[in-house]
Amino acid sequence: NQASVVANQLIPINTALTLVMMRSEVVTPVGIPAEDIPRLVGMQVNRAVPLGTTLMPDMVKGYA
């Protein structure tokens, strides 16, 4: 099963992502693939992302 990117903490709206904010986990539904974590660093979320939430492509500005 493919691992997805999951929020390791509450990520406030418009926050630029850092490695410490994300972890990989096998979840359903599948979100952004864990191998894209390096690409996500520095990108901003367009909404608040609660701890444990799977990051979906539409949550990250410029990802989709």
Rank of each mutant, 00 (worst) to 15 (best):
R23Y: 14
M56E: 08
P57G: 06
T54Y: 05
D58V: 06
N8G: 13
T28P: 03
M43D: 11
V60S: 01
E35D: 05
V49R: 03
A7W: 00
L17D: 01
V6F: 05
V20A: 08
G52Q: 09
K61V: 10
G52S: 14
I13W: 03
Y63I: 08
N1M: 15
A7Y: 00
V20G: 13
M21H: 11
N8L: 10
L51N: 05
V20F: 09
L55K: 01
P57W: 03
M43K: 08
P50H: 11
L40K: 00
P29Q: 13
S24A: 08
E35S: 08
V45E: 01
A3M: 13
M56T: 11
L19A: 13
I11D: 00
V5F: 01
V20C: 07
T28F: 03
I32G: 00
P50A: 15
V45F: 01
V49Q: 03
A48V: 09
V45R: 00
R39N: 06
A64L: 10
V60K: 01
P38T: 03
A3Q: 05
L19W: 04
S4P: 01
A7S: 08
L10I: 14
L19S: 11
A3R: 02
K61I: 08
L19M: 14
I32C: 15
R23Q: 12
V60D: 01
V6H: 06
Q44D: 08
V5H: 00
K61S: 13
P38K: 08
I13Q: 10
P38A: 13
Q9I: 14
Q44K: 05
R47I: 10
V5I: 11
Q2Y: 06
V26Y: 08
E35Q: 08
V30G: 04
M21C: 02
V26D: 15
V5K: 00
M21R: 08
L40H: 01
A48F: 07
L51I: 10
P33T: 08
Q2E: 15
N46M: 09
G52D: 11
V49W: 02
L17E: 01
L55F: 07
A34F: 05
V6L: 13
P50N: 14
P33A: 15
V45S: 11
A7Q: 01
T54F: 08
R47E: 12
N1V: 15
T18L: 06
V27P: 05
Q2S: 13
T15K: 07
V5L: 05
L10V: 04
A48D: 15
G52R: 07
I32F: 03
I37R: 07
P29G: 13
V26Q: 13
G62L: 08
M22S: 01
M22P: 00
Q2K: 02
P57H: 12
V49C: 04
D36T: 13
I13C: 03
V27D: 11
L55S: 00
M22T: 03
P38V: 08
M56Q: 09
A34I: 14
T15R: 04
R23V: 14
P12N: 05
G52H: 14
V41H: 10
G42W: 04
S4F: 06
M59R: 04
V49D: 00
M22E: 01
V27N: 11
S4W: 07
S4E: 00
I32W: 02
P50M: 11
V6N: 03
N46A: 10
T15Y: 06
V27C: 04
L55P: 00
P12V: 11
R23A: 09
I37P: 01
Q9M: 12
T53A: 10
A7V: 12
E25S: 06
M56D: 09
M56S: 09
R47P: 03
N14Q: 04
D58G: 09
V41F: 04
A16E: 04
Q9K: 05
D58P: 09
Q9L: 07
L17H: 00
P38R: 05
M21P: 01
R47L: 09
A48C: 13
